[in-house]
Nucleic acid binder design. Structure first.
Lengths: 153, 153
DNA sequence: GTATAAAGTTAAGCCCGCTTAACTAAAAAG
DNA sequence: CTTTTTAGTTAAGCGGGCTTAACTTTATAC
């Protein structure tokens, strides 16, 4: 490796700050809602990836199907998730956020952003433009990585 | 495209992807080490902010001093943290990472970072340069926000 | 010098997440 | 049609995090 040290260094510094910040932030927010972090993570997962079955949850979080079922059940009873039957496979369930769940996540994201808004205030217009462009680049790259799009190296 | 995207929207998209990714990643890593997420978070805290007392932990994570004490105790017994007496106040303790603790966190960062390396491979040299610059800007701004430095725009 | 406040610790008890194990029900395979 | 595999649920039990409450020890205030 070591093909571009500045990149590594820059992103490491940023990640160090940002990861610590966001981890702490989510933890405190989840707590303030009365949800545990695992419960909250499931909502995040649904927000991020959309509807899925029980098995997807258990695989994604590396827990047993039993654990996933119990966790989801609490979220269903709290009204954050709905658990419908999959029309194509009557064994399977289709999990999705309810409006209440969607609202909650949105609220959480809102709160997380407040820090970034503070951050924005520290920047000049020019800096902002640079950052925007870089973020768009990164977001696109992240999606490529996520979806397995090959950009041939 | 999307060059007219406001700052907040660009960063929201990025955060949406990145936060979800890093949250999940830390959770799985912590789990793989046998540490709980709260325990792990304390190590992160020490890594990020340096030595501190018991009360700082309890305030930072919004838990009672009792909970902090118990949590820290486990980390001490596992050898990730050392708990010394504060020379200036014999009631207080000074918590700090041991080498073992420091190594663990470094390992975690390393693993988190692998995703970013994949990301880097999706970028052209020019894009990398842009991203580096933006990250430096953000890191600086984050530190200003953290320390309360006034940039006075 | 006594009273009060502050920093941590310890113990009891609760809730929660997770696992294993035993189960139901539906789909796929033969 | 029977067998096996797949999706999910339920119950018992363990361990962890957190809280309250009672305590020890050291610093600070009067």
């Amino acid at each position: 490796m070591t093909k571009s040290l500045p990149f590594s260094q820059a992103i490491r510094e940023w990640m160090d700050v940002f990861m610590h910040r966001s981890m702490r932030g989510w933890h405190l927010f989840a707590k303030s809602t009365g949800l545990s972090l695992p419960q909250f993570s499931i909502l995040m997962q649904l927000h991020h990836k959309g509807a899925c079955g029980m098995s997807a949850i258990s695989e994604r979080f590396e827990i047993t199907p039993a654990a996933a079922s119990q966790l989801v059940d609490k979220l269903v009873q709290s009204g954050f998730i709905k658990r419908d039957e999959d029309p194509h496979d009557r064994r399977a369930k289709l999990l999705n956020l309810t409006d209440k769940g969607r609202t909650l996540i949105q609220q959480g994201i809102e709160e997380r952003y407040r820090w970034v808004e503070e951050l924005e205030e520290k920047l000049t217009a020019e800096e902002r433009a640079q950052v925007i462009e870089a973020l768009n680049i990164m977001t696109r790259a992240a999606q490529e990585v996520e979806t397995g799009t090959q950009a041939d190296k």
